[in-house]
Simulated scan of single mutants.
Amino acid sequence: MENKVKNNDFSDIIFERKSVRLYNKDTKISHEEMLEMIQEATTAPSSVNMQPWRFVIVESEEEKKKLKPLIRFNTAQNDTSSAMILIFGDMECYEYGEEIYNQAVEENKMSSEVRDQQLEVILPYYKNFSKQKMNDIVKIDSSLVAMQLMLVARSHGYDTNAIGGFESDQLAGAFDLDKERYVPVMILSIGESIDAGYQSVRLNADALTTFK
């Protein structure tokens, strides 16, 4: 797969990122590049490496029409972006535990003994979490990958907007996912910006930080 990174300037990627709401409607992102960006983003950390994030890429006009009534006041992004990336947390992510840890062994990143020891503890632990506890874990982990995906997108020459205003009780079902298993976390619009993005301010670190 050809790497399509256009920008490796860390400062530009971080400090010039803006929330973009208007995009070039004619810009398309290939499935190959979208998967490349997601692969890069999923180097984000997750609790015991369970990787609970799941992605639905809404790019066709038909599917965008289905999404539009569910995203409240964020319709400009839906109308103009190359795609809307729906990020869900998998409440049964532990089902992939053996696959993940087996891959680690195959790639000589973990011994089979360590794999067996960890899975023996982790899998029952995860399966016994309350629904609220698991919900918290998958949302934290999926938010980490969402932020990383926004930065990866900038390195590929695209801009994004993180969207939290949507009908969370309807999103999974609208795209044929089990709403009990897949918890909506965030939607990212992505595309080629035709908008300067919103200028914003941040509170000073000393107002937010306590040293003990």
Rank of each mutant, 00 (worst) to 15 (best):
133 K>A: 14
56 V>H: 02
48 V>G: 00
54 R>F: 07
32 E>F: 03
82 S>T: 11
27 T>S: 08
58 V>I: 15
130 S>N: 08
159 D>A: 08
194 I>M: 10
85 I>D: 07
202 R>L: 11
10 F>L: 15
208 L>N: 02
165 G>A: 12
13 I>H: 09
119 L>N: 03
156 H>V: 05
35 L>R: 06
210 T>W: 03
173 G>C: 02
110 M>F: 03
9 D>S: 10
20 V>A: 09
139 K>Y: 00
41 A>E: 12
22 L>W: 09
37 M>Y: 07
66 K>E: 11
136 D>G: 12
190 I>R: 01
181 R>Y: 03
27 T>H: 09
125 Y>T: 13
185 V>H: 01
108 N>Q: 15
44 A>R: 05
128 N>L: 11
153 A>K: 08
49 N>T: 02
115 R>N: 03
105 V>E: 04
79 D>M: 08
19 S>C: 11
181 R>Q: 11
84 M>F: 06
198 Y>D: 07
164 G>K: 05
65 K>G: 10
91 M>A: 13
172 A>H: 09
17 R>Y: 09
196 A>R: 06
71 I>K: 04
159 D>H: 11
26 D>N: 13
38 I>D: 05
129 F>R: 15
65 K>L: 15
87 I>S: 10
11 S>C: 06
140 I>F: 15
207 A>S: 14
145 V>L: 06
138 V>L: 06
83 A>V: 05
40 E>R: 08
65 K>W: 01
179 K>L: 08
74 N>Y: 03
78 N>F: 00
22 L>A: 12
110 M>I: 02
66 K>G: 01
83 A>F: 08
195 D>E: 14
106 E>F: 04
93 C>I: 03
134 M>K: 13
204 N>S: 12
29 I>L: 04
156 H>E: 03
1 M>S: 14
28 K>E: 10
208 L>P: 00
44 A>L: 05
190 I>F: 01
6 K>W: 01
75 T>V: 10
100 I>P: 03
92 E>Q: 12
176 D>K: 14
6 K>N: 06
9 D>R: 02
137 I>W: 15
125 Y>D: 13
111 S>N: 08
210 T>Y: 10
56 V>R: 01
81 S>P: 03
135 N>G: 15
15 F>I: 00
49 N>L: 04
65 K>D: 12
100 I>E: 04
86 L>N: 06
93 C>Q: 04
1 M>V: 08
76 A>C: 00
90 D>F: 07
119 L>P: 09
70 L>C: 11
155 S>G: 14
116 D>L: 08
144 L>N: 10
45 P>N: 11
77 Q>W: 04
147 M>A: 13
75 T>H: 04
42 T>R: 06
90 D>A: 12
55 F>H: 13
206 D>N: 14
189 S>M: 13
39 Q>M: 12
137 I>E: 13
188 L>Q: 06
33 E>K: 12
158 Y>K: 01
96 Y>D: 14
48 V>R: 06
116 D>H: 05
22 L>C: 01
119 L>K: 04
119 L>M: 14
142 S>M: 02
97 G>K: 02
63 E>F: 10
